[in-house]
Each structure stands twice: as structure tokens, then as C-alpha cells.
Amino acid sequence: MRLSETQKDQIINELKISAIRSSGPGGQNVNKVNTKIELRFDLNDTAVFSETQKQRLATKLKNRINLDGVIVLFESSERSQLKNKQQAVAKLIELIEKALTPVKRRVKTKPTISSKLKRLEKKKQHSTKKQLRQRPDL
């Protein structure tokens, strides 16, 4: 399910974003600048989704939701705070869209006649190969 631009804007308005010190390589930039982004989205208090959508999100994203019903994401791949913030928001929206997309039901199909014949022909070839390997009867 694709989210509309108004829904995306509402989600962005409800986000709690904080910057913290990032770890890893980066030299003095790591020691001085808070570039790692911690993004929090409270699923229980949001007005963007209906109750059924909230329940679906809670079941699909249960590994990313803490006990308070808050989705917490961290992003620290870039050296820029702004780029990390943009990536974190994009990741959250992608997670939500993926979780709200209904699963397509698999349509059962029967094997075609040609595929059955191919399978039988391969079986025959395999059995003749095995028979040729056997020691001849004396």
C-alpha cells in the first residue's frame, strides 16, 4: 500500500528525532559531531492510521516495536546529520508501506502436459544411464 503525501507529512510531524554521537570510523568528525539519528514513532498515539492498520503494523513490525508501542530506528551510515535524518525517515516510511501491503494469495496451477512429458523423458534418460553403468549379466 502506498502512503499519500499527506499521510507521509503527518507521520513526519509526529516523529521524535534526536541526534547522538556516532561510532566507527570518521576521525575527529565522530568525536565532535552528533551525526547518528535516533528516530521514534509512537504507533499507539498516531492519528494517521485506523485501528486495524495499527494492529497490522504491530503484528508485522513486532520485532521493531518496543514495549511502549514505539518504533525506534537508528541511522548512522552517512557522515552528515541531515542525510542520516532523510535516510531514517525514508526507511520508516518504507517499513510502514511494506507492512501495510496485503500479501498476494498464490493461485494454484496444474503442470502442463509438456512439463509432464519432459519430466518422464528425463526419468527415462536417468534410468538408462544407471542401467548402462551396471555390470552385464554372464
Rank of each mutant, 00 (worst) to 15 (best):
Lys83Ala: 09
Ala88Val: 07
Asn29Cys: 01
Gln53Trp: 08
Glu38His: 03
Lys32Leu: 00
Asp42Ala: 10
Gln86Trp: 03
Gln81Glu: 10
Arg105Phe: 08
Ile96Cys: 08
Gly69Ile: 00
Gln53Arg: 04
Thr35Cys: 02
Ile96Lys: 02
Ile93Glu: 08
Ile37Leu: 04
Arg56Met: 14
Arg56Trp: 14
Asn84Arg: 04
Asp68Tyr: 05
Val48Ile: 03
Arg64Gly: 05
Ser50Asn: 14
Gln81Thr: 03
Asp42Tyr: 02
Lys32Val: 08
Ala47Ser: 13
Arg105Asp: 14
Pro102Val: 11
Val30Asn: 06
Leu67Val: 09
Val89Arg: 03
Asp68Pro: 02
Glu38Met: 14
Gly26Asp: 06
Arg105Ile: 11
Lys54Gly: 05
Asn31Lys: 14
Lys83Gln: 15
Lys104His: 02
Leu39Thr: 06
Glu94Gly: 14
Ala47Asp: 14
Val33Met: 01
Leu73Gly: 10
Lys54Cys: 06
Leu39Met: 00
Ser50His: 07
Thr52Gln: 14
Lys104Gln: 11
Arg40Lys: 12
Ile37Thr: 05
Arg106Glu: 09
Leu61Arg: 06
Asn44Ser: 15
Leu95Lys: 12
Leu92Ala: 02
Pro102Asn: 10
Leu73Gln: 03
Asn34Val: 04
Arg79Gln: 10
Lys83Met: 08
Glu97Pro: 06
Arg56Asp: 13
Leu95Phe: 12
Arg105Cys: 14
Ile93Cys: 03
Asn31Trp: 10
Lys91Ile: 08
Ala90Arg: 12
Asn63Cys: 09
Gln28Glu: 13
Arg64Ser: 11
Phe41Met: 01
Lys83Asn: 07
Lys85Glu: 06
Arg40Pro: 04
Thr101Ser: 14
Phe41Ala: 05
Lys85Met: 06
Leu57Glu: 05
Ser76Glu: 15
Asn31Thr: 13
Leu61Ala: 07
Ile65Pro: 00
Thr101Phe: 13
Ile71Arg: 05
Arg64Asn: 09
Arg56Glu: 14
Phe49Cys: 09
Leu95Gly: 07
Lys62Cys: 07
Ser80His: 01
Arg64Trp: 13
Ile96Trp: 05
Leu43Ser: 01
Gly26Glu: 04
Gln81His: 02
Val33Ser: 00
Arg56Phe: 05
Ser76Cys: 11
Ser76Thr: 04
Ala88Met: 07
Lys85Tyr: 01
Phe49Met: 02
Leu61Cys: 03
Asn31Met: 06
